[in-house]
Design a protein around this nucleic acid. Sequence first.
RNA 1: GUUCCCAUCGUCUAGAGGCCUAGGACACCAGGUUUUCAUCCUGGUAACAGGGGUUCGAAUCCCCUUGGGAAUACCA
Length: 549
Amino acid sequence: MNIVRFAPSPTGNVHIGNIRTAIFDWLFARKTKGKFLLRIEDTDKERSTREAIDRLLECMEWLGIDYDDDIFYQSSQEDAHRDAAKRMMEEQNAYYPNVENSDLPKPIIFRIPWNSESYQNVRIVGNVELNVCADKPVEITQGGVKFSYLNEKNKVVENFFALAGYRKLRLFGSDDTLVFEIENHIDEVLKDNKNFTFNGCKKIAYERREVFYNDMIKGELSKPLDSMKDFVILRSDGTPVFHLANVCDDITQKVTHIIRGDDHVENTYKHIFLFDVLHYPIPKYAHMPMIVNQSGKPYSKRDGDAFVGDFKEKGYLPDALFNYLSLLGWSPGDNREKMSRKEMIEAFGLDRVKSAPAQFDVVKLQNMNGLYMAELEDSAFLDMARREASKQGWGEAVDKEVFEKVAMLMKTRTKIISQVSDWKYFFFDNSPLFDMSTEYNLSSKSFPYDDKALKKAFKEETFIKAIASFRDNIEKQQQLECPADFEAVIRDTEKQCSLSEGKLNQSLRVALTGSTSGANLADTMFILGRERTCARIEKLLTIILSSKF
RNA sequence: GUUCCCAUCGUCUAGAGGCCUAGGACACCAGGUUUUCAUCCUGGUAACAGGGGUUCGAAUCCCCUUGGGAAUACCA
């Protein structure tokens, strides 16, 4: 059975990059009928908080990302981590660093294994010869090989990488004589902790090897061993560092597939050795592309906008966010975009995940959200709208029944619930342009005109005259008891002004709402009523005739 | 500095050597929206980063360049 895990560290707010990783892990687990485990990596006690954990859990629940088994807290595993480090020491896969002042507590450092020709993930790639700077010493210690060489730009580059990167290392003096052969002295370095320093060396030669693995998303990836360093696994205070804890826990939790962000590929090369040394088969790896923000930069926890909870706060629907995020770096391969969980699970596969980073686009998210909004039950939508209007500070001020009517009219064209602020033109007449003297001092405007729409709608004088006639007709009209009555007046006015049917719609809409899109015009007028309809037209005429636009 | 990764419209993407005059979605622009009325409709602009190969044929394979990103911690 496949076992995957989502392993966030609760040191801040979960951002969309994190949660997108969780989504892919979850999708993979559900698709393959495996397990999706949640592990909280709280070993950084300074920065981990209970609050962050609670918020994370809340976000996951909101998005419907359910996990199997109990939550696994990494902090509960410290003994296991220390044991593992101890075992590595015993098996000489780890060591204490050489330091002058030996009274201080020492960390434990993991050694990239010297003897790794039997490792399935290590291979020889060729022989290397480098001209070293003779005026700089070549040092060989437990920690690795240190020397300096001249790069292509003739700059001195200092090199210090793990011992394991230098199998068959040979050092040559200025007269090309062999001064040192590492294979003859390796036990002295490894076991007796002996150091070698050579001055005046001219050339260094060794066999280059590399670690490699097959990434389920990115294909075969590799890294030369002479670009890797030994690394600390247990701090001098006895606490485990990320690499150790992470790998130990994956072993404890029997994780089979590690699906995580791109920023971990480099760690993978280290972890492969750790798994090996701990005698555990290397899991399958899949590294997902990062999500970048509007300016094309990677999201960090500092990006306030990216906190998942904020999307909830702003009124996004969880299914919409989930759906949108799943489409960042993955696609089902056909033209489907809006998909149910079931469809996504069925279509999901790591082989279809891209390896290029994806930019987060709020506008498209909003559109996706609108698709989900339209599917909401009327009552659920109404509840959301009421809450939102209250939150915006005007919900209590309006008639409940009218509000309900408006909500039903606007439901299918609401992309995100905060757009209920656009409905204010149904209720209020005050705005910079529409100063109808009502007491209305809310911070946001009720309905400023769309300038472009205004110009377009009244480009021709006919329309100015026509809406004036319409106002006259409405004032005269006895029967105005349903939207159809308004509709009839619109049609009559069109005839009267020799306009073809429907031609007057746009101008009237702009006059009444300030915008080119909205609910059905007659419905809108019916809700506004005779008085306000006339008053708005009157006001607009004043504006136009005084050439304010 | 070193190592590694990435590159199709503004954005998300389709693309497995010939179905590509490069498809879809969002955004944008232009029109239209009386009827049975909205997840409004119709149309349009817009991309294979550049240069070399390989091949009868390249968005697709190889190399180089450029540009972006990551890692290089006693953070995770």
